[in-house]
Write a protein that binds this DNA or RNA. Structure first.
Lengths: 341, 341
DNA sequence: TGCGTCTTCTGAACCGGTTTAGGCAAACCT
DNA sequence: AGGTTTGCCTAAACCGGTTCAGAAGACGCA
């Protein structure tokens, strides 16, 4: 229970060597004979010594922890399973290295910036993950100024010194639109995510492009904040118009599921009266009715890639960008041939 | 950018006093004259000094961080918005104190126990939140042995030295069952959560009780792991029987939403053919069709209460249990009068 | 005036590692 | 043989705070 915690001095004394040598042996650095190294490690093992993280932190000026600051309305956060999966993915690479993840959930951008500053001035973390990239993201110059290694989740639209993990959403959106067109849809609308968020505006641009490439006129788009409530509102507006779209492409699954609910509520059949597609392929999509046609993404792959990249960056001082394979369309029941085109 | 980080020694030199006195002034402890204190703090301010968390950690043997270890399948984790809200609640009390939250998401119980051990042996955290309480929870004796302060989320079924934050699920479940009975339902089934989890088995017991108190025969119950997939399976089994229930009480909302999907898929109308209720009132419930009748709980209140209690426990050595107000039934469209009772 | 007490403050030890300058042999030159 | 290199190791400084024993001065009191 309360054994007086064995320290490096105990190990050194027991082995009849200096503290320094124990330290060298532990971090296997040159200048220790093979026998000594083995003997020291054996004694450390026997004494049950684990080097004090705190002491190590102080002398090495590292904290052995990585940070993730999430600035989202808890409500939006709750309906989006991205982060749990992402974090689970990150952990698979952090845990074996003995690194911890420090998580902050903050309500607004101002608090967010303050949080980064205090993470740094407290020396709480050795690096951070930058998620939900925004246009002209102020966090990038901030972190650069603070000298904190970072990895961005998504490709920034500004000059950035940090490696990024990104995936091109264009093919997924394009595939969705082409699929809908092949089913006979001509009036296709888009419920976009937040235009302030890069993946929000990029998915929207991909949607516009796909339509024009198919030679169709621009479709209706409604901007939202990615929340379920906003998705429902948008769906209601679209579907109660004089001549409503026959298909709606939602920028994420939670909004699409809300759209499904709205369609049902309005007495519309899905997909006969309106086709609905989502984005992300969250767990729910398989179990709503009709099951949601959507684009599969892999948040835990993001996590793993981001974790590895950040580790590389910190160890090597540089790390290459990672391009994750684009999401593919998963065809289920929520999109079909329009009854009245 | 890379100012050579001002330390306590700089402040002491500038103020013409000893390091010790600066430390005393900072932690406002007796033995410092009012003038000195003011002058020192002013100089600290001017120099932009923030005491090094790392040095502080080493000498005080505290880490100024709290831990949360989540042992859940990422898939289940993703569809349940409890943790994001809970964490947001926790942060509101940690952040002002300068405390950080260290999060671990682990795949299984063995890793979980190992994680607690290493959090302690690394001195990574000063206390932890124990969520998803299980029967005869092995984490309680473990943490007791490790001497780590903890707060349990839910009332343990064994002797526990830790304060707990709990809410009685019984009234919510009972209210739901009574409501269904009042609508005319007699064959009511329950899709229970994991029996290994305390809230899973307690909600089930509440269900059984409510039926027997109403003088009805025991209803069907199916155990699940709280996952969306399991909820869908259970619903399918229940609804494809010879004489299916007219109402199903699900132990959480994600499963209930899956149940809604299954009912639709089977061509059943909700609530005419089958009524469905959930538990937790997650964001989605308002936007599925029909909107889900469920029991409202407040995860961020749990977070705040748990945070405060853990702080009290660490500061005072003891803290009282907290009983959160029981969840109330929120009536929406998914439950109604059975057409064929 | 002398003595005890209180307040304010200092110096040094301490937390538990890492790191650097340097000592001492043994091995390697030529 | 003498000088240099090399390998292994030690002692001490250092990271930046906290804490404790005790010094110095102010004050009260007999």
């Amino acid at each position: 229970m309360s054994e007086p915690k064995v320290t490096i001095a105990d190990v050194a004394r027991e082995a009849g060597v200096s503290k320094g040598l124990v330290s060298f042996a532990l971090n296997d650095r040159p200048g220790v004979s093979a026998e000594s190294r083995i003997r020291i490690l054996e004694i450390a093992e026997r004494l049950g010594w684990t080097p004090s993280l705190r002491a190590r932190s102080l002398s090495t000026r590292r904290s052995f922890a990585l940070g993730l600051v999430i600035a989202r309305d808890p409500e939006v956060l709750g309906s989006d399973p991205f982060f749990p999966s992402f974090i689970a993915g990150v952990e698979t690479v952090l845990a074996p290295q003995g690194l911890a993840l420090v998580l902050s959930v903050v309500p607004d951008e101002k608090t967010e910036m303050r949080t980064y500053r205090s993470l740094v001035s407290d020396g709480r973390v050795d690096g951070v993950f930058l998620s939900d990239l925004r246009h002209n993201d102020p966090r990038i110059p901030l972190l650069q100024e603070l000298g904190l290694p970072a990895v961005t989740l998504g490709r920034p639209d500004t000059q950035s010194p940090f490696p990024c993990i990104s995936v091109d959403d264009t093919p997924g959106v394009a595939e969705t639109v082409r699929y809908l067109i092949s089913l006979g849809h001509r009036r296709i609308a888009h419920v976009a995510g937040s235009p302030a968020l890069l993946h929000g505006s990029r998915r929207r641009a991909a949607f516009d492009n796909a339509l024009s490439e198919a030679g169709l006129p621009a479709g209706q788009s409604i901007e939202t904040d990615f929340s379920v409530a906003a998705g429902a509102d948008a769906a209601r507006r679209l579907l109660t118009q004089a001549s409503p779209p026959t298909a709606i492409v939602f920028a994420n699954d939670p909004m699409a599921i809300a759209g499904l609910g709205v369609a049902h509520e309005l007495g519309l059949r899905v997909p006969d009266d309106v086709s609905i597609t989502g984005f992300d392929d969250i767990d729910f999509t398989r179990y709503v009715f009709p099951a949601l046609t959507t684009v599969r993404t892999a948040p835990s792959d993001w996590g793993r890639a981001a974790g590895r990249t950040l580790l590389d960056l910190m160890a090597l001082g540089t790390a290459p960008d990672v391009d994750l394979p684009a999401g593919r369309l998963v065809i289920r029941g929520s999109a079909g041939t329009p009854l009245r085109p």
